[in-house]
Write a protein that binds this DNA or RNA. Structure first.
Lengths: 338, 338
DNA sequence: TCTGGCACTCACCGGGCACGAGTGCCAGAA
DNA sequence: TTCTGGCACTCGTGCCCGGTGAGTGCCAGA
């Protein structure tokens, strides 16, 4: 087991490296931190830490930098979550309070998170499957054409065109609308399929074609939209470290463009509590030099979606985690209010 | 005025430079193009072109590269628009045909354009002000709470919450819905304000409060949403030239993150026909090293929005213009069908 | 007006060299 | 046993320097 002081040395190395972006040597370390021992002692500790795989040397006559394993230990044992200052908290609230609709909430959240952490921010739209139905609307556009509009409790709206096999009257449409809503309003999306299962049977023969096609479109929408949407921002922050890995930036940008990858990334995060994935812990190759800090957010106790940031493994973990957690909380509040 | 051959030399320089990304000298030029004259002659022509400001030398003993002015002349006089191959056209159509809703159309368009041009693609959502109303829906959510849903002929849906001063009955809401729709369906958004101007007067005193707040919310939505939405993609393509301007990439990413800047950029493009803005012709400083190729698209003759690409001034103009034009046409068709 | 020749410029490349940060090891002190 | 100071060693970085070659401008002659 590592002694108390060796852990302290690791913490100091991580902190210095995050700050300076340069390998840190034994002498500099004793000068900047009150370790109470000489550089020679620190060197011995460093050798031990290197044996254990927590730090590494880029080349022989250079200082040490933390490895992924080193950051992992730092995050798990050595670092807390740094709470935001109260001016920062006020700023978050003010900024988010101005949002007019869901798109706006998500957009503002992304910008906010990118600005606070100075990294790339990713925010998932509230998931349909975990949301509840606020309203289903059926609009007659033409005799045999209906628009299906789905509204969630989180304010999200989805619409689909439905071509009916036979012309539908305003009356039977109103009937369907009423019966449909009475069954599904307030229920979770995941439960909708079985709630409407027997609905066609209760209609006249002539309307059943229309009813079942409307229902199947509704169910399709649920399935299709389960592949969630998300928004990203702050990609310009990637250029902050372009000087030491100009070639690392490309795979990251590519990964960020693939929603599938990002959704998987957020999906891997735990539902509650914060998840930190460091370097090679990320399955996607392009993100092997980055860390992801993600957390679920929601209007109530339960997470309806996730948000987080993507940055270099060499990031300020306590600060980033603090910002991510704070933003998630405030977004949850905003959603609960609307 | 420049002689025919000098223009030919300029064209050759632009083509070679776009291909190789390296300053092009007189000797290489005569070897790769059948100009029918010696390097010495070309040198004289180059000197003349440099005097006129069409090309420049990065440093004394190097070849020439085109200036913004040189590219401008190339685009205006020397380059055509390169039509796509028919496999490419088929691929576009197949890819766009699979779209299920407006978001999907725009998303696919962005990816397509980024892939075809290997540059950053920007697609504006169909504008509200130039669209027509397909339907306005009013949904009672609570006794004094109504959701306003606005549907455009291009498939776009906007919704707003309305808090009414007094509880509204289902009947009076239906009445308002019917009268509202009879006035505005099929009309252009820009005309809506004056079409509904006198509507409150025709209602009973007790409902006027509700009517006017619904209308004002509707009008607000029109104004707010005039600041359009857009989608971008292909930012990973920026890294293709990271080797010669690693520091240029940052301002570009920053500019791309500001929707306002992009909207202005597209807004400056002509409504019809293609617009090419080269280097310093772009007002925004961050984009001084990039060119923007933009064009309007729409379901009919008229443009409802714009799309385009952002790339280095050293881009394949004929090919890019061809791709942008083709994609715009197909998107227009898709929108017209839905 | 074009061409070949010629002198000149200057970015780029590779080698050699000094510098210095950082290391590992060891003997002696606490 | 643990820490400390000293010392030799490594090696990346920055700098200078000369050679090379692509490219130029100019000029005299066709």
């Amino acid at each position: 087991m590592l002694s108390e002081r060796r852990l302290e040395v690791l913490r100091a190395i991580v902190q210095d490296y995050v700050g300076t972006e340069e390998p840190v040597g034994s002498k500099a370390l004793t000068e900047r931190h009150r370790l109470g021992v000489s550089p020679a002692t620190v060197r011995n500790d460093m050798a031990a830490l290197e044996d254990e795989g927590f730090i590494a040397q880029p080349h022989t006559s250079a200082g040490r930098i933390p490895t992924d394993k080193g950051y992992r230990l730092f995050v798990d044992k050595l670092a807390g979550v740094k709470p935001l200052s109260s001016p920062e908290r006020r700023a978050i609230q003010n900024f988010l309070d101005g949002a007019v609709d869901l798109d706006d909430v998500v957009g503002r959240t992304v910008r906010l998170l990118a600005q606070l952490t100075r990294q790339v921010a990713v925010v998932q739209y509230p998931s349909l499957t975990r949301s509840t139905v606020r309203h289903v609307e059926l609009l007659p556009l033409a005799p045999a054409r209906v628009m299906l509009v789905l509204i969630t409790d989180t304010g999200r709206v989805e619409q689909r065109m439905v071509d009916c096999p036979t012309p539908v009257t305003e009356d039977s449409l109103a009937d369907l609308r009423a019966r449909l809503n009475s069954r599904v309003v307030g229920r979770r999306f995941a439960d909708v399929p079985q709630l409407v299962q027997d609905l066609p049977e209760s209609f006249e023969q002539e309307d059943r074609g229309t009813v079942s096609i409307v229902l199947s479109t509704l169910l399709e929408t649920l399935v299709e939209e389960t592949e969630e949407r998300l928004m990203i921002g702050g990609t310009a922050n990637l250029t902050r470290f372009v000087h030491d890995f100009p070639l690392t930036i490309r795979p990251v940008l590519e990964a960020l463009e693939e929603q599938v990858v990002l959704l998987k990334l957020l999906g891997e995060a735990k539902d509650s509590g914060m998840t930190v994935r460091i370097g090679h812990e990320n399955a996607h190759e392009g993100l092997n030099a980055t860390s992801v800090v993600a957390v679920g957010y929601g209007s109530g106790d339960e997470a309806v979606a996730k948000l987080g940031v993507v940055g270099p493994t060499r990031m300020d973990y306590p600060g980033t985690m603090g910002a991510v957690r704070a933003v998630a909380r405030y977004v949850g509040q905003i959603l609960a209010e609307s």
